[in-house]
């Protein structure tokens, strides 16, 4: 065997991962994931409401949050896999981004669990209540910062241009969704959706944003 063979194999697998080879597959996976994320958020909110209405104990609420957390992490991980398949290129900055983002999401899940349990068990008031309520938002904000950090650290200008455009598509889409939903809600046609859903929805919108940004370079 020649010494060059292993390197060639790596190059071949990178070629297979190119977005041109399977955009439809990534698109399908995205739809499944988007439905999954939406379903998970809906199921979580519905189960919390059900448990509250039936005066369930803190243990049941914590368990529900735990299941939700597990679903969020699984979705996040799957999403990264799909994202990798779509973009093909894994620059060092992109690898750091994946690691940091998953860390932030893990911290988020545990902070959410802690905050929900503390609010149920301790029933705090005043400043402590505010601090506990804000706690799960902090790792989410960190995740937003991680995206900013990636855009700053990405040395491959072509990849950075694509990711920046994808983020702008996602932002536009998110604002459009929020506007439409806000008016539908005003007319009492749809239920209320908590505003923290904006970031998860925006993250999901990054995937079609990627497809739109890459379309020009096919």
């Amino acid at each position: 065997m020649s010494g060059a063979l292993p390197k060639r194999t790596i190059i071949m697998s990178a070629t297979e991962d190119s977005p041109r080879s399977r955009p439809w597959k990534a698109g399908g996976a995205f739809l499944v994931l988007a439905a999954g994320v939406g379903g998970a958020i809906w199921a979580y909110l519905a189960s919390i409401r059900y448990l509250r209405d039936h005066h369930a104990g803190p243990a049941a609420l914590t368990a529900a949050s735990f299941v939700y957390g597990a679903v969020v992490l699984t979705m996040g991980w799957t999403f990264m896999r799909v994202h990798r398949g779509m973009t093909g290129a894994r620059t060092p900055a992109a690898r750091r981004y994946t690691r940091r983002f998953m860390t932030a999401m893990s911290v988020y899940v545990f902070t959410l669990l802690g905050a929900v349990s503390a609010l149920r068990y301790l029933r705090p008031t005043g400043a402590l209540a505010y601090a506990l309520a804000i706690a799960p938002a902090l790792p989410m904000i960190a995740a937003i910062g991680v995206i900013g950090l990636y855009l700053r650290e990405e040395t491959d200008e072509f990849q950075r241009a694509i990711q920046t455009e994808a983020a702008l598509w996602a932002t536009g889409g998110m604002m459009a969704i929020a506007t439409v939903w806000g008016f539908l809600e005003m007319f009492g046609l749809v239920p209320h959706v908590d505003s923290w859903c904006a970031f998860p929805i925006w993250s999901v919108l990054l995937a079609p944003g990627q497809l739109l940004a890459r379309r020009r370079y096919r």
Binding site: I11, P19, T155, D156, F158, Q159, Y217
Partner: peptide
């Protein structure tokens, strides 16, 4: 020191 996709584009 860029990705193969960048070279292609």
């Amino acid at each position: 020191e860029v990705s193969r996709q960048s070279v292609n584009a």
